[in-house]
């Protein structure tokens, strides 16, 4: 494990450097926006990475909440399987197929939905017991960092292109901002509560946050959206060379995110081990001093 980390770091640096070269030099200039558009190679991969990390946080929180009782864990398992089966079949049915935007393949939608139960079982397999909570805190922290990058690069890009820094009432902008706010409040809760129940409280808050996101989306439904539709699968209007660079950038960002998560995960595990060792030590110390002080107190009496 320890040998892979430096190798992976070097690979990530190389990939990020190559992605920067691709983004600045190789990718063609946008016909309408000019050079400004190149920020997309930072903006979009960060957004995808952030959303993926928030989703991992949600899955880990659900697993953490349901693991205390066998019956709820079973129920959650069957719900995950149900989502997978429905997601695999439904996109091919004619009534659902009509709802899928043109240019998006039903098979692509089905694969994406099947990834949800796959992730659910993968997380449960790789992170048993308390490691689920460590995964939740790690993914939330790194997710907030990537989401902050999205929220900073977004206005930087919007100002020259739309003429405004921020479009209030826009569906994607607002829901990303609310997502960021929810996860910041999640981290604040974790910071302010250092009792034994923190993990349970944080997991419950993560579930509330995840329930909130579709409602935020719905609540801004009425407003006109200024943000462009997703470039992948949406209209297919993107130059394939640009798409290639974008996907490569995403790969580099994903690897970078994974690396940061990994080191944060190890740090958190070590921190908890140290805390536990300290607790055990002080417990043993208290017992010793009790034994030592007993004859003394008796003799003094």
């Amino acid at each position: 494990m320890k040998k892979i980390f430096p190798i992976l770091s070097i690979v990530t640096v190389a990939l990020l450097g190559y992605a920067l070269y691709l983004a600045l030099v190789v990718a063609p200039t946008d016909a309408l926006q000019g050079e400004v558009y190149r920020i997309i190679y930072y903006h979009v991969p960060s957004a995808w990475t952030a959303f993926l990390l928030f989703f991992i946080n949600f899955v880990a929180s659900i697993r953490y909440l349901t693991r205390s009782k066998a019956s709820t864990e079973n129920a959650a398992k069957w719900v995950a399987i149900g989502i997978g089966v429905v997601g695999l079949v439904a996109p091919f049915l004619p009534p659902v197929r009509r709802l899928i935007p043109p240019g998006m393949e039903p098979s692509a939608v089905a694969t994406t939905i099947v990834l949800i139960p796959a992730l659910y079982f993968l997380v449960g397999k790789l992170f048993p017991g308390d490691r689920l909570d460590v995964l939740a805190v790690t993914s939330a922290e790194v997710g907030v960092v990537f989401c902050t990058i999205v929220l900073i690069t977004g206005p930087l890009w919007a100002r020259p292109v739309w003429g405004i820094w921020w479009a209030p009432g826009d569906i994607r902008l607002t829901s990303t901002l609310v997502l960021w706010l929810i996860y910041v409040s999640y981290l604040v809760l974790r910071r302010f509560s250092n009792s034994a129940q923190t993990q349970m409280l944080a997991a419950a808050l993560a579930v509330f946050g995840a329930l909130d996101v579709p409602l935020v989306y719905l609540s801004i439904w009425f407003f006109r959206t200024q943000h462009p539709q997703p470039v992948i699968g949406g209209g297919g209007s993107m130059d394939p060379r640009m798409l290639h660079v974008l996907l490569f950038s995403w790969l580099a960002f994903l690897l970078f995110g994974f690396l940061v998560c990994w080191s944060r995960f190890r740090l958190e595990l070590l921190k908890r081990e140290v805390e536990q060792a300290h607790a055990m030590e002080s417990l043993a110390g208290a017992e010793d001093s009790e034994k030592a002080s007993l004859p003394l107190s008796r003799s003094s009496r």
Binding site: V178, I182, S185, L205, G209, D212, V216, S219
Partner: peptide, 8 residues
């Protein structure tokens, strides 16, 4: 905790 969740 309450305000972010209450936004919608």
């Amino acid at each position: 905790l309450l305000f972010p969740i209450s936004i919608p």
